[in-house]
Simulated assay, not measured.
Amino acid sequence: MNPRHQIFISSTFRDLRKERQAVLDAILQLGHFPSGMEVFPAADATPWNVIETIIAESDYYILIIGGVYGSTDEKGISYTEREHDFAVSKGIPVLVFLHGDPSKIPVGMSEIDPIAQKRLSDFRNKVEDTHHCKYWSTPEELKSQVVVGIVHAIRVTPRTGWIRGNTGDSAETLKKLTDSLEENSTLKLELKVLRDSLGTRSEVGGQLASGSDIIELHFIPEDFKEWTIVISWDELFKKAGAYMLSDIPENEILFFLSRELSVIAASSQPNPEQANKIALNAKLEKDDFDKIIYQFLALEYLEPITIVKQTDLFGKPRTQHIRGFRLTKYGSTKLGKLLAIKKS
């Protein structure tokens, strides 16, 4: 039995988009699950609690450091550094990948503030003192380093990981699986009713909103009630679909979308720079998120699944059945067309 592992990717975001994608590709090619600040809490937990939860649930933690220290909390510590410190405190194996020559990083991708530069330097020194680090200069080189690093980490520090649901053998596991299958059947029935009432998807009958049609989305909690974003269904699917290259729990989709869309919403606020600093605290309204999911189901971009995990968030043995989704064949084709580079 070869378990699949959940691997948390930690880094600043805007300056390391290509690098994060390279790491995500490496994890998927090895047959594991990439994650990164992607869990949505059932209760009114703070965003940092969300991040703590998904890190605690991860089997391995990957840290990428480039030329930016990143957004900081009220104590001046970046969220990336906080994530690293939390992973270490939980005993999660940490794989560190540092840019090999920060002086060659373009100015637009580097810190220019002396205080931020000092904090970034201190952070680099801290991880170099406590971890065996690897160094990279291009996304391709980083991807190769990550593949080797993951294989080595799994061999020397094996973790529980995820296993197929059919390996469970207890009566309790069987009952939970049965309940989940019944829930899945109910969801499929609801979807059929929705399709029957709305007709075929817009590409066929033109009765469902999609493509360049737009939807207005709202955010919570109260501090963000004035925040809105108007976005087309194609753009929305491009952002959501990028996180669905492997099976993904529903709450992770919500957290990813909240993070992506709140940054866009922040840019239209009276003080965009200040708004961007607090965008991490904004979450999509649950009703709006449900509309998105059911629309994607009706358009046959997604299909519901049950994800089985064998440990709880503290690494203790416990079978969990989580509602999730995966791209359909049609959804994968649609996403590929949206992301493909068009002729100029």
Rank of each mutant, 00 (worst) to 15 (best):
K291Y: 05
I112D: 11
W233R: 14
L181D: 04
T200L: 14
V156Q: 04
A275T: 04
T200G: 12
Q6N: 08
P47N: 11
V39K: 09
H152N: 10
D169E: 05
G211N: 09
N281K: 06
D287Y: 02
E222V: 14
K18L: 11
K286Q: 13
D101V: 15
S144L: 06
L95W: 02
K188A: 05
S202L: 15
L191S: 14
S267A: 14
I292F: 03
Q29G: 08
I231R: 02
L297R: 03
A22C: 03
S121A: 11
R259V: 08
L63W: 11
L208P: 00
Y79C: 05
K90I: 07
E111V: 03
T319I: 12
N276Q: 10
Q117R: 11
Y301Q: 00
G100C: 08
A242Y: 08
E203C: 15
S10P: 00
P139Y: 00
E226D: 15
S78M: 12
I163P: 00
P304R: 13
D113N: 07
G336Y: 10
H84Q: 10
L297H: 01
S170V: 04
L189S: 09
G161Y: 00
A340H: 13
K192A: 13
D85Q: 14
I264Q: 14
Y243E: 05
V96H: 01
F219P: 02
T12P: 01
L187Q: 05
T130W: 01
T46Y: 09
L187F: 07
R159A: 08
R159L: 12
T12N: 01
R155T: 06
S185T: 14
V94C: 03
V68G: 10
S267C: 12
E74A: 15
S332W: 04
L284Y: 03
T311S: 11
Y330L: 13
D288N: 13
S180I: 12
L191M: 12
K118E: 07
D213R: 15
P317Y: 07
I154M: 08
T167A: 03
R318L: 15
E235L: 12
F289Q: 01
G76N: 08
S144C: 01
G324V: 04
K75W: 10
L63A: 12
L327A: 06
L191G: 12
L98N: 04
A282F: 02
H84N: 03
E235S: 14
R82N: 10
M109G: 02
A242I: 11
I112M: 08
E285D: 14
D196V: 11
G31N: 05
E235I: 07
A116P: 05
L191K: 13
F8P: 00
L24R: 08
H218P: 12
I253W: 04
S210K: 12
V148D: 02
I150Q: 03
L120I: 00
S185Q: 13
K143G: 03
V39R: 09
E83V: 05
L189Q: 09
V147C: 13
T53H: 13
A279R: 04
V308N: 13
V147H: 05
Q6D: 01
S121G: 07
I307W: 02
A242G: 10
D312L: 09
L254S: 03
L142M: 06
D73F: 07
D101P: 04
R159S: 01
A171H: 09
D223Y: 15
A265Y: 01
G324L: 01
S35I: 06
P3M: 02
S202M: 15
V151N: 13
K316I: 09
S246V: 14
K188S: 11
I229S: 10
